[in-house]
Design a protein around this nucleic acid. Structure first.
Lengths: 195, 195, 195, 195
DNA sequence: GATGAATGAGACTTCATTCAT
DNA sequence: GATGAATGAAGTCTCATTCAT
């Protein structure tokens, strides 16, 4: 009988592992329990049901998600450097989130729970978009981005670009290697004269 | 007993419908059979297994997918107009594909089959990216895009942008209305002087 | 693989058997499938869920239940003879129904389904009471029961008496042997001069 | 942390409450613990197992059960008045006991334990029947009931009648309102001239 | 005495698939 | 080609009970 307090974390970690390997579809109570070295029933001592466990996985990833935004301070470094850096973190983050993100599109029931629980807590994808948009507006105010810049669209393209790069990885031989993607994305997005 | 030849189409259509409403997770033999007004067993008269039925749905969507590219002819209209138009079709197309796209990320087994069957036939997402990239290169050759343009990155951003716009719809109140997304995306992507 | 059409009946018969031996609490899908020699899943080819199977058991018993009433024709034989006979059938019927009747009191969920399904179809216990009351009123109209007879109360006591006799059997050494109960019940219920 | 001695009573009270609302089937360790505001584990500090808790509920009800008989003294008041009064108490008592009584019929395991524990202690239904029968025999000895009266059968019908009245309540719109049942039952049971 | 986490067993149900008709 | 019944495997979840703290 292992240290009891540890179990919840083990279950979440196991769920993360299974998620990577087998996707949301393979994330069963059985597989998680097996990987965690705990009994299936044990899951229900810590989570109301399977979906809550999945949401806990998302929650566990959130600090990493916040960190993506943390480095973004208007006026510091160059805009290109900042965006490249955030794209790089975004790609790493996205890579681990993709099975979950896919799961939301693949399972309306999970999506509904996600919206119900995560959106009011502002843990949804809006927050990411909002954070990046806010940074860009900051840069615009500082004059480091042109006055005509559509910050929301720029943020959308940045996120969509890095997510697409990760998505293409799924199929092998992506048209743009993820290693190069941040630089090429940012160069394409920013007017050339931008510092 | 309806015209037998019709059954396969009904099953594919039913699968599409279920996919929209219930996602890959809800796409069961039972739900498809019910919606198609056919028996569960009849699925196996036309498809080797459930995954093959799903692949058939993708196949059924391909003409629509090709049409997205068809309008893209270098030199015709303006580049902005062309890209806006393709983004608009892309959003509509993506909206119906998202549950499938999500399904691929949510189910490695389905993904493996997809790669095995669809990639050799060049029916994967690479083709879309390649098509748009080719168009952009055509425009570059015509001098309607700058010589320094990174066509592959531009295509990636265009696709990623429209997919992100659709993805945000899932959660309600998207930061950029899908109606406006094509225009705002293209304006942000293209240097202002581009015709 | 046995004759398919037979399965539903086998399942109902198995459910009856399990019910007698193990009560509603022991009437699990597993036990029924085992006794029926069928797979658990097979139950769901014939019944929406476990409760529907239980209701089917009740339905299967209904003809026997109707027969209890069939012998009751006002004017035929003596009243005492008729009631004794019906009490005798009633006891036999009740003995097989007791686990189910108990189940209704032991499980509000089952009770709710029963009310929803059986009452509109007039398959509930009201019908039994109504049938006997109607017979007694017939006899009263014929003058074979006193004008002051409370037919509804008499029917209630008859049914309650035989059910109580069966109920006491559960605990061993019933105060009145079920063999004698019909006669003693009827003698106590009917005024002595009644023919 | 409340007064420890109180816990046992709280658990029994909680079990009673759950029993009324959810029947024996819904009387789980979890539901009882929740209603009692105690932990599941604490049940096992006071009871060997779940069945013993149920038996404790019966025990807690016994004083009320004894009181049903207490008012029955041969020679006091009229026989009809006495029986009506006992029927009235009996109905109230039965209403709260029905889920348990049903439980005994619905669960042979519980029944076996009940017989094992309660019958030797004379806490079973026999005792009720015996008590009423004894009263009736007392009245017969006093000449207030006819010499031919079958006291055991009369007691059986009285109990069966009131239990049936309660049982019919389960299904809604009982044929005889429980309010009127005692009077109508007793009038039907007793020869009219009985004082 | 009280607790909450842990658990094996088992409950109900759904699933994809097979196959005789 | 079409069907519906059959099924083993698996899925989610609940249960009564144990036990270390």
């Amino acid at each position: 009988m292992p240290a009891p307090a540890e179990t919840r974390q083990r279950l979440v970690a196991a769920a993360e592992e299974v998620l990577q390997r087998e996707g949301v579809v393979g994330l069963t109570t059985k597989s998680v329990a097996r990987v965690a070295g705990r009994s299936e029933g044990s899951i229900y001592n810590h989570f109301a049901d399977r979906l809550e466990l999945i949401l806990a996985v998302i929650d566990a990833r959130l600090p990493e998600f916040i960190a993506v935004l943390a480095g973004l301070v208007p006026g510091r470094r160059t805009v290109a450097e900042n965006l490249e850096r955030v794209a790089r973190s975004g790609i790493a983050f996205e890579r681990s989130m993709l099975p979950l993100v896919g799961g939301l599109a693949a399972d309306p029931v999970l999506l509904a729970r996600f919206k119900e629980v995560m959106l009011p807590a502002d843990k949804g994808p809006h927050r990411l978009h909002r954070g990046i948009t806010a940074y860009l507006q900051g840069e615009k105010a500082l004059g480091r981005l042109g006055a005509e810049t559509d910050c929301a669209a720029l943020a959308l393209l940045l996120i969509g670009g890095w997510r697409e790069a990760v998505f293409q990885e799924l199929f092998g031989r992506p048209p743009i290697a993820s290693r190069d993607a941040p630089r090429r994305i940012v160069r394409t997005l920013l007017p050339k004269e931008t510092s």
